[in-house]
Design a binder for these strands. Structure first.
Length: 425
RNA sequence: GGAGAGGUGGCUGAGUGGUUGAAAGCGCCAGUCUCGAAAACUGGUAUACCGGUUUCCGGUAUCGGGGGUUCGAAUCCCCCCCUCUCCGCCA
C-alpha cells in the first residue's frame, strides 16, 4: 500500500512514478479529495467527543445525576458523532478501496520500459553448455523414466506433473541442498509455514485483491493456497512491532506454490516450466530501510551462488519499471540456460518491496529501546524455484549416451551421481 | 465434534459503570552514587489519527474484533475470532 500522506503531499511525484509502471490514470485526485473530507470529519467528531468527555467527567466528579438539559444535549452530540462516524467509515472504505489496487512505486534506478523487452541484462556468468542435439526436458525426462506428464494430467489435469524415482529424488535433493546452504552458510532461519492462509494475509503481501484470479481458494473455510512462501513469511509479523535489536530478520522456507496461471494460458505449455503446483525455496528479509539496497544485492548474490555451484550458465536481469511485480520497487531476475529447451529460464526473482508490504501488514519495528517505531523494508527472493532448476540440471547434465550427470554439490543429497536410461528389453 | 475456562500495555498481572491510558512487579532508558560496574534510590518508558505557534503542545481513539445499553463502558448485554484444559476422533 502506498502512503496516503505521500499521495496527498506529493501527488504529482506519485503520479509520475505510477506512470512509469504503466498506471495511466490512477485515481489520485479522488483520493486527495476524500482525504480532505476525512480530515474534516475527524476534526468535527473529535471536538464533539471532547465535549462529551468533559460533561461526563464533570457529572462523575460531582457525583450527581445528569440534568434533563445535559441529557438532551448529549443525545444531540452523540447523534452528530454517530453520523460523522458513519460518513467517515464509508470514506475510509472508499480510500482503502482505491489505495489497495495501486502498485508500489519503482525506485529511481529502475530502468524505463513497458514490458519484459525493457529489461536489462546486467551480467552473464559462465559459458552456455550442453551437448549438440541435446533434448528438451519434456522429451529427455520421460525417456529416463523420471517424469510423467500424462500421469499428472490424469490425476489432476493440465499443467500438473508426476516426478518418479531419481527425478523425485533430485527434486528433493535440490530443495534440501538449498535450504541447508541458506541456513548453514547464509544465516537464514528455516521456517515451515502454513500453506493455507487467511485473506488478510494474502492482502498484506499484495496478492489480494488484485490477483485473486491466479489464486486457489477453499470457499468453505475461506482460506487461500499460497502462490509462494513469500505470502506466509510476510505475514509472520503482521500487526506486530518487531522489538529493538532483532533486525535484520532473515527467513527461508521451502513450500509448494499453487498458481492458476489463467493469465498465462497458452504460454509454456510443454514440460514443467509453467505448472499449477511446484516447489520453491524462498528467502525473505525484514531490514532497516538504510540497509535495504545492500540486502537486495546480497540476496541476489546468494541466489546466483546457488546457480554457480550447480555449474549452470546464468544471467542477471534488472527488470524495467513496466515489468516489476505489483508489490516490488525494484527487481532482479536470474535466468539459467537450458540447452535442451534452448532458452533462458527464470529461476529466481529478487525484489525489495521497501515499506509497501509492511504498511499493508501494519508491521513495524523499533530501531532501539525507547525510540520511535518505523516501518521495516521487506525483501523476497527465490532461492531457487525447483522445477526450473531441475530442468536446467538435467538438460545441462545430459550425455551423448543418454544419461544425465548430477552436479557434484547435489550428490551427497541424491545418493547417486548419474541417471541412466532404463535398459530396453 | 462435546464440556468448561480465559483473552488487559514489551512481559507477568490488578481492576465488575465515573480523575483507569489503565495499580503493582519485571524489563528497558536516563540520572544520582561509584575509579568503573553491580546493588540501591529518583524519574521516565504504548500506538494511531486530527489540529497547531510542529525537536514540542492540545485533542481524539485504542484493555481480542464488531455491534448495543448509558450523560459516561476495560467493567453490563449480543455476535464473532482466538487460546488453554478435559473428553471424543485422528496422521
Amino acid at each position: 500500500m502506498l502512503d496516503l500522506t505521500e499521495i496527498v503531499r506529493n501527488t504529482e511525484r506519485v503520479r509520475a512514478a505510477l506512470l512509469r509502471r504503466g498506471e495511466q490514470d490512477p485515481p489520485l485526485d479522488r483520493i486527495v479529495e476524500l482525504d480532505t473530507e476525512r480530515r474534516r470529519l475527524i476534526a468535527g467528531a473529535d471536538t464533539d467527543r471532547a465535549t462529551r468527555n468533559t460533561v461526563s467527567k464533570r457529572i462523575g466528579d460531582e457525583k450527581r445525576k445528569p440534568s434533563p438539559e445535559e441529557i438532551a444535549e448529549m443525545r444531540q452530540t452523540n447523534d452528530r458523532i454517530k453520523a460523522a462516524e458513519q460518513s467517515l467509515d464509508s470514506i475510509q472504505q472508499e480510500i482503502h478501496g482505491l489505495l489497495m489496487p495501486l502498485p508500489n512505486l519503482p525506485l529511481a534506478d529502475v530502468p524505463d520500459g513497458h514490458d519484459e523487452s525493457g529489461n536489462v541484462v546486467v551480467r552473464t556468468y559462465g559459458e552456455k553448455t550442453g551437448i549438440p542435439g541435446g533434448q528438451a526436458h519434456w522429451d529427455l525426462a520421460p525417456a529416463l523414466g523420471i517424469l510423467d506428464m500424462e500421469a499428472g494430467a490424469s490425476i489432476s489435469g493440465a499443467r500438473f506433473y508426476v516426478m518418479k524415482g531419481k527425478g523425485a529424488r533430485l527434486s528433493r535433493a535440490l530443495a534440501s541442498w538449498m535450504l541447508d546452504t541458506h541456513s548453514n552458510e547464509f544465516g537464514y532461519t528455516e521456517i515451515e509455514p502454513p500453506l493455507l492462509v487467511r485473506g488478510e494475509t494474502m492482502t498484506g503481501s499484495g496478492n489480494l485483491p488484485k490477483f485473486k484470479d491466479n489464486l486457489y481458494r477453499d470457499d468453505e473455510s475461506d482460506l487461500w493456497l499460497v502462490p509462494t512462501a513469500e505470502v506466509a513469511l510476510n505475514g509472520l509479523h503482521q500487526g506486530k512491532i518487531i522489538e529493538a535489536d532483532t533486525l535484520p530478520l532473515k527467513y527461508v522456507a521451502q513450500t509448494p506454490c499453487f498458481r492458476k496461471e489463467h493469465t498465462a494460458a497458452g504460454r509454456d505449455v510443454r514440460g514443467i516450466k509453467r505448472v499449477h503446483q511446484f516447489e520453491k525455496v524462498e528467502m525473505f528479509r525484514y531490514v532497516e530501510p538504510e540497509g535495504s539496497e545492500e540486502a537486495l544485492e546480497e540476496m541476489l548474490e546468494q541466489a546466483r551462488t546457488l546457480c554457480e555451484r550447480l555449474g549452470l550458465a546464468h544471467r542477471v536481469l534488472k527488470l524495467c519499471a513496466g515489468d516489476i511485480g505489483f508489490q516490488s520497487a525494484k527487481t532482479f531476475d536470474i535466468e539459467v540456460w537450458a540447452p535442451g529447451s534452448g532458452e533462458w529460464l527464470e529461476v529466481s526473482s529478487i525484489s525489495t518491496c521497501v515499506e509497501f508490504q509492511a504498511r499493508r501488514n501494519n508491521t513495524r519495528y523499533r530501531p532501539a529501546h525507547g525510540e520511535q517505531v518505523r516501518m521495516p523494508h521487506t525483501l523476497n527472493g527465490s532461492g531457487l524455484a525447483i522445477p526450473r532448476v531441475w530442468i536446467a540440471v538435467i538438460e545441462n547434465g545430459q550425455q551423448p549416451d543418454g544419461s544425465v550427470v548430477i552436479p557434484e554439490v547435489l550428490r551427497p543429497y541424491t545418493g547417486f551421481d548419474r541417471i541412466d536410461p532404463p535398459i530396453k528389453a
